[in-house]
């Protein structure tokens, strides 16, 4: 196991910088998830840690060692790819054993390690099959198995669940999380799916345009986003953000407003206002999404779409006029010009 440290890390293609001097410390055994939209630089960062991309500036340390100039194989890391990268001409057993290709272990020790990884990942009955006979989830497990047998200092995952269907993705999230708890190895994981980030990470690193916007525990980022982008990126459905003016401790929508108010759909409740709602929004319902335990209600306020929550069996009809309220302390405020977070009210 090892720490991973990024110091003023820069990546440029020609004259274009795509990573702008980022700094990060990943603790020993920590599960860090890099999250952000496509093109934000999260995969490039991971590939630089792996040694698959050259570093244009700054330093990468794995443990105490600067690895900028080291080949991928000498960094003692293992990587799991989005497309699994398991070899179709080899069996599951041979694929897993491929991780030990350069190992100095004896044949028996290698076979034991392969069997151990197979057992841990539930692949034992499949060891002699070819990848073409496996489901997407099983293939991803084989890829994880190949990474595991090497006992690496850190695992790197590059969007490993993107090719799986929703149900399998949910299952694999739990399996990877459980695997991390069992092995305790440092993990750097890249995804564009904020649900994966929220459910798996010890710490989330939100990236945009080659910068780290925020780094923190999932609930810390969810509760205290540093800016509008992070606030809207983390959490499903996205946070409602609209301009408001504040008068006597109560906010009301206005365009232009003096401040941007951000309210998560789960904090914006359709129905009667309780004592002292700090923000009330009224509009005509455009869509309802029954989710079982609750219903999401879509309506428009001054032409801007807003999502609120209603109790499961009290969903309003489409076209109905509704009022939704946010309680004090549930409204995030952001500066109109900088979009940075302000103290919450």
């Amino acid at each position: 196991m090892a720490t991973i440290t990024l110091r003023n890390l820069v990546k440029s293609y020609g004259k274009t910088d795509v990573i702008h001097g980022i700094n990060l410390e990943v603790a020993d055994g920590e599960f860090v998830v890099f999250v952000g939209p496509s093109g934000c630089g999260k995969s490039t960062t991971l590939r630089m840690i792996a040694g698959l991309e050259e570093v244009s500036g700054g330093e990468i340390l794995i443990g105490d060692r600067v690895v900028n100039e080291l080949d991928p194989k000498t960094r003692n890391i293992a990587m799991v790819f989005q497309n699994y990268a398991i070899y179709p001409h080899l069996t599951v057993r041979q694929n897993i054993a491929f991780g030990l290709y350069t190992s100095t272990l004896s044949k028996e020790q290698k076979a034991a390690k392969v069997s151990e990884a197979g057992a841990m990942l539930g692949l034992e009955p499949l060891l002699d099959r070819r990848p073409s006979d496996l489901s997407g989830g099983q293939r991803q497990r084989v890829a994880i198995g190949r990474a595991m047998v090497r006992d690496p200092a850190a695992f790197l995952f590059d969007e490993p669940l993107s090719n799986l269907d929703a149900q399998l993705r949910a299952q694999m999230r739990i399996e990877i999380k459980a695997l991390h708890q069992r092995l305790g190895t440092t993990i750097a994981y890249v995804t564009h799916d904020q649900v994966e980030a929220m459910t798996m990470a010890d710490r989330i690193v939100v990236m945009r345009d080659g910068h780290i916007l925020q780094s923190g525990a999932p609930m810390e980022i969810y509760d205290n986003p540093v800016d509008v982008f992070t606030a809207r990126f983390i959490g499903t459905p996205s946070m409602n953000v609209l301009p408001v003016v504040e008068e006597g401790g109560v906010m009301r929508p206005a365009d232009p407003g003096t401040v941007l108010a951000g309210i998560r759909p789960h904090d914006l409740l359709v129905g009667e206002a309780g004592a002292g709602a700090s923000l009330s929004l009224a509009g005509r319902v455009t869509a309802v999404e029954p989710l079982g335990p609750e219903t999401l209600v879509h309506f428009e306020v001054a032409g801007k779409p807003v999502i609120a929550t209603a109790p499961a069996r009290q969903a309003p009809a489409i076209g109905a006029e509704v009022v939704a309220h946010a309680q004090p302390g549930r409204v995030h405020l952001f500066d109109v010009a900088t979009q940075k977070s302000l103290p919450r009210r």
Partner: peptide, 18 residues
Amino acid sequence: IPDDFLEAARIDGLNEFT
């Protein structure tokens, strides 16, 4: 051939000829 196959092998420690 997807580059991932080759990069996975690089990380597994194989040289370019192998």
